[in-house]
């Protein structure tokens, strides 16, 4: 066994999934021992994540008549349904360019909603893959977030067309959508990992989630505008992480408004908190997943 000891040293930087020397010792909870190795492996396997996303999209559209057209039909229908709802309730009529404003908010909120719902089932529905293969399981919820982003692109085309039709001209502030999306992606990734872990231990998560998301949706400035918020609702500005994401996004797209610089700090803060919380919960529990699926 003396020789073995030497080997261990030379391959010490081997990570837990690849490489040729593995030592498995008891550790159910806690972060991966070789954290940077874990992240490296996560990055190295991003192809798998992409393929997983594509595979899920393809599988979902397999039996449908419209197939990929659903990427465009979905956002349009969603916009029309809410437009109808709001016209009946006749509240939003005071917001200029209401339809475009509504679409913008709907689409960005949908990124969060899809990340959460797909993320929640990402680990539990991977089933055999989790019980049969050793791989960084964080790829599963991350692939759900990637899927949510992939769904956004066709929606954005719808949005741009609608904007042009309703007389919103392209402007420099449209570029702000990129950093907003980057921060939102980080935020969603954190939450997706969190709900994925919750779902493994508590299968009721997915049943609660739609109602929770509805509530969150109404608490975010999608159907209403941020400046319509009554004084009594002011707490939403501080407690709802999506408030700034949605408001900044919609204002930048529809009204060409530059946000208050401190908004970036707030959004980065939320994104970081979500990522650290979700990442910690997921990575420290993931080795226990195989026995719970």
């Amino acid at each position: 066994m003396a020789k073995a000891a030497i080997d261990v040293k030379t391959v010490a930087d081997d990570d837990e999934f690849r490489g040729t020397f593995h030592v498995y010792e008891p550790y159910r909870a806690g972060l991966p021992r070789n954290f940077s190795g874990y992240l490296k492996e996560l990055w190295r396997r991003r192809e798998f994540m992409n393929e997983m996303t594509r595979a899920n999209v393809r599988a979902n559209q397999l039996d449908t008549l419209f197939g990929r057209l659903w990427n465009v039909i979905n956002p349009l229908l969603m916009g029309l349904v809410y437009l109808l709802l709001v016209l009946i309730l006749a509240r939003g009529a005071t917001i200029p360019n209401y339809f475009v404003y509504l679409l913008a908010g709907l689409f960005i909120f949908d990124v969060l909603e899809t990340s959460m719902s797909q993320g929640a089932k990402s680990v539990t529905s991977a089933g055999k893959m989790v019980t049969n293969t050793a791989f960084p399981k964080a790829l599963l919820p991350l692939s759900a977030v990637r899927g949510a982003l992939a769904e956004l692109w066709p929606s954005l085309i719808v949005l741009v067309v609608a904007a042009l039709v309703f007389g919103v001209r392209p402007q420099l502030t449209w570029l702000l959508t990129i950093p907003i999306l980057v921060l939102l992606t980080v935020f969603c990734a954190g939450l997706a990992m969190l709900v994925a872990t919750m779902q493994v231990y508590f299968r009721d998560t997915r049943s609660f989630l739609p109602y929770f998301m509805r509530l969150w949706f109404f608490a975010s400035p999608v159907l209403w505008a941020a400046d319509q918020l009554p004084k009594s609702g002011d707490f939403l500005r501080y407690l709802n992480p999506m408030f700034d994401f949605v408001a900044t996004w919609s204002d930048a797209i529809v009204y060409g408004e530059w946000p208050n610089p401190q908004v970036w700090l707030v959004m980065s803060g939320w994104a970081l908190v979500a990522l650290i919380l979700g990442g910690y919960v997921f990575l420290s529990r993931e080795r226990d997943f195989a026995v719970r699926i």
Partner: peptide, 14 residues
């Protein structure tokens, strides 16, 4: 295979 970490003991795979 490294899918389930042991609760006690040690597994070495080369």
């Amino acid at each position: 295979s490294g899918i389930l970490p042991p609760t006690e003991g040690r597994i070495e795979i080369r």
